[in-house]
Amino acid sequence: MSSDTITIKGIRQGLLVTLGQGDWSAELRALEVRLGASPSFFRGGRVALDVGSRELERSEIEEARALLARHQVELWAVTGTNPVTEASAQELGLVIEVGLPQPSVPEAASEGGETPFAEGLVVRRTLRSGQSLRHPGHVVVIGDVNPGAEVVAGGDIVVWGRVRGMVHAGALGDEKAVVCALDLAPTQLRIAGQIARSPEERRRKPVPEMAAVREGQIVAVPWHSGGG
């Protein structure tokens, strides 16, 4: 299996997927496995593919684009070092240069353990309606997550502010992921495959809360220092 050679990173414009060195069709199969394993993390997202030095025809890139499209992921860029590949990508209207990615951390398969991402993402602004933040690691937002905005993270989500939009922690399948916020009143809160809504009635005075999966259900409890 070559699936562990695929790495996924958060970049400014979405996700950067770096394929391994294997045969093209084998890498695509591995990619398909990854997409199928955590559909809610990828769905609706934009992906840039880093194909390294391999030489690709138009039809081969189209194959990758179709595969991503089947999982409702948009391919917007193909990056690499091969001029033939670059030309093919440009013919298809794809971007060939992406923003500088954050330092790469190989993403290991997680089976119930800690979320294996060393990298976290800190966003120091309020996410407004229509804005979406996707990151394979942990996410910290210093600001609010307004209604109509969404944060999808492979790891934990910590919001130093109000959460009124949609937050999805552990979106790559980690049920141990948590969501913490100073005021936790999301439209919807998801952890791994679990989905919860906020209670209908509005609380008078918000308190910091932490949401986690307990016995197959999402529960939010007031957060006290030292209590966890």
């Binding site: 407004r128 309606s129 307004n146 209604p147 109509g148 905005a149």
Partner: peptide, 12 residues
């Protein structure tokens, strides 16, 4: 208000 928030996001 939701749409105003979206617009403010775009402007920012």
């Amino acid at each position: 208000v939701r749409d105003a928030d979206r617009i403010i996001g775009l402007i920012e």
